[in-house]
Nucleic acid binder design. Sequence first.
DNA 1: GCAGGAATGGTAGTATACAAGTCTGACCAT
DNA 2: ATGGTCAGACTTGTATACTACCATTCCTGC
Lengths: 225, 225
Amino acid sequence: MEVYSKRRGETARDYALRVLKGNIISLDLMPGTAISENELATELGISRTPVREAVIELAKAYLIEIYPQRGSFVSLIDPKMVEEARFLRRITDTAVIEAACDEIDEKGIAALEDNVSLQEFYLSKGMTEKIFDLDNKFHKGIYEAVKKDIVYEIHSTLMIHFDRVRTLSVETVKDFKVVGDHRKMLEAIKAGDKVTAAQLVEKHLNRYQIDEKEIRSQRPEYFKA
Amino acid sequence: MEVYSKRRGETARDYALRVLKGNIISLDLMPGTAISENELATELGISRTPVREAVIELAKAYLIEIYPQRGSFVSLIDPKMVEEARFLRRITDTAVIEAACDEIDEKGIAALEDNVSLQEFYLSKGMTEKIFDLDNKFHKGIYEAVKKDIVYEIHSTLMIHFDRVRTLSVETVKDFKVVGDHRKMLEAIKAGDKVTAAQLVEKHLNRYQIDEKEIRSQRPEYFKA
DNA sequence: GCAGGAATGGTAGTATACAAGTCTGACCAT
DNA sequence: ATGGTCAGACTTGTATACTACCATTCCTGC
């Protein structure tokens, strides 16, 4: 596991949470790995209490499974969870992008424009490792533009189920059509074209569904059933 | 605050969580009330640790606001939060009821039928206090029928923002048109009529929007801005 | 009477100690 | 060789102690 350094002013709990989330998404903590609260506390140089609080939060999002008196483990990739996350993401992304077509302002457009341009830049330079973060921020930007930032926040932890598949996806498929998707979405928003925007969301999310089957055959030990 | 008794086998943390949630929904813990972790621990006969874990979970859902070294307070009713919760509920309820129109099975229909019949019974007998729980279970039943129970679970804590307004609504408005709504929804699902089903969801949720303005004028001290 | 500062009591955040259950492996009896 | 059992080293759950910080209050000095 990769241990980041603690930021100034960051509480011990937020620190533990940041490290856990990051390593689960990146698969440095592979699905199925045992998580020892004591061991993790020692590694991070903090006590068990804040570590435990972070573990509980991730367990609430089904990213860690806690078996009392036995142990805690990073959840295996559960196709049902991924499917529910994808379902949720599809319907909220669709509703939000449609709202954006109606009510986005200049500032919101400018923020998205900057983001997509940067993605295109990194893609052209082959610095594809930068794109993952920008991808998330692009979608977050749409939510913020229509004042639904709490909805994004509430869903973000759950979407890690999705992110893990995406991590495997970029590892194995090396497919960056997503950048083109983002550009088209932005153009649809600017044009106020709800129908096209909604279709793009659908298509965008389907990319990962296709990948999943391929990944599953390559890494069956990461999957639940 | 009403202190329920601890169930056998229930962990101290779940116990604290159940008591807090229940009292926040029922408004026995009024918006703005100070929550002392120490005091609550004493009242429940458990230690601060599980109480604190419960408080943190509710803070994640914006139901409690924690000010470090100063205190924790039950959140005031925030119109933006209520609006985001309503938005989320509208789009997910709509998507789920449309899915139910296509894929619900006999067992799912039977469960909903039992629920609605019971609502109608209690309504006819004037036992309206029973309806609140049945209302929740009706909607949960639809999610389960289309295998989206995690989505329901993830949203349930956030929907307490909504539930508080509903609690005030039944206190002040005494309007049980919702039972009729549920009957109509069920009939639409049985008929596989997506368009009608979606319209009913919209209408159903709008009831609370109308109430909110009335409630707000009666209890301004519960509201944020 | 009033302004300022120190003492006081309270809070959440963190650390540590203890309780209760589970698994493993050694060891002994059959 | 096999099966049972018991000790010990884990685990999470809970309790308690301590720390740093904030707000109020009350006393002091003017």
